[in-house]
Write a protein that binds this DNA or RNA. Structure first.
Lengths: 142, 142
DNA sequence: CTATCATAGTTACTCAGGGTAACAATTACT
DNA sequence: AGTAATTGTTACCCTGAGTAACTATGATAG
């Protein structure tokens, strides 16, 4: 019974946290004319150099048409470009120079935002929370 | 520098967790023809008995028209009803008997879902995570 | 007590983001 | 060689959410 109470709280707390988080994140990103789905892809490509649309879809847990749209917008903006590969089916994308520049600029805003929302939470707690979130994600995905 | 790394990881981990969480939650809720915004309102009304649309908007961190729409759908389904109050401007809502019945039924599914995704995470860790999420939410909202 | 200001909610319009189904092009496999 | 599977796209539909403009009601200052 006690456990059930905890579970309910966890669930509701999580749902309640996401909306303000997303709202504020969008405010930060809109300073650079970006949306969070686009930002997430910039982040991935910056750290992994290049990726196919299917890899991006798995990363974001969305369907392929969603990625097609997001990438199309990023291509229009000139932030990503197509890099040819052996397999002619796949469309491997990477950041352009402009994309890298924009990413680094927005990174500053995002870092500041993260520091603001994590104020008063110790390093250990953050690491613990990161680990727990990872475990939950594994539980969900498998 | 180490701190910055933590912040980046935390942030990205959170973004990454939400999508699978939402996808699976929608699967659970769709068994009962509900969406998560509607579920969240049922939950609030079940625990707080009644609420005005503005109170619900604050709870969910959304604008008023969003709540108007969600409530309209819940009214059509016969899950909530209008309870008259002194202030004729406000529209105070509460669950109908059917609404309470549905809530209790879905509650079982949701509890099971929560237990599944929290498998392998101790009670203490869950409580810690709940507390941290609360602190982050306060940081964002203020 | 009236005029102004504030609050609650609705309507109309717009947008982001995502899903499914059907399809073409290419590659892998038997 | 012929059939599977994979990759990506297009078309169409839906949820969820925001802004601006509005009505109706209540609160307050003079």
């Amino acid at each position: 019974m006690f456990l059930i109470e905890i579970y309910q709280k966890f669930f509701q707390q999580f749902l309640l946290l996401y909306r303000p988080f997303e709202n504020n994140l969008n405010i930060q990103l809109s300073k650079h004319d970006l949306h969070r789905a686009q930002w997430s892809i910039l982040h991935f490509l910056f750290n992994y150099d290049s990726a196919t649309l299917v890899e991006l879809a798995n990363y974001q847990s969305v369907e392929k048409p969603t990625i097609t749209r997001t990438i199309a917008r990023l291509e229009e903006l000139g932030y990503v470009e197509h890099v040819p590969s052996k397999d002619k089916r796949e469309k491997r994308m990477r950041l352009t120079e402009l994309g890298k520049k924009i990413y680094s600029e927005v990174r500053v805003t995002i870092d500041q935002y993260e520091q603001d929302i994590l104020k008063g939470i110790t390093e250990e707690e953050q690491l613990a929370a990161i680990r727990i979130m990872g475990e939950i994600r594994n539980n969900i995905i498998k």
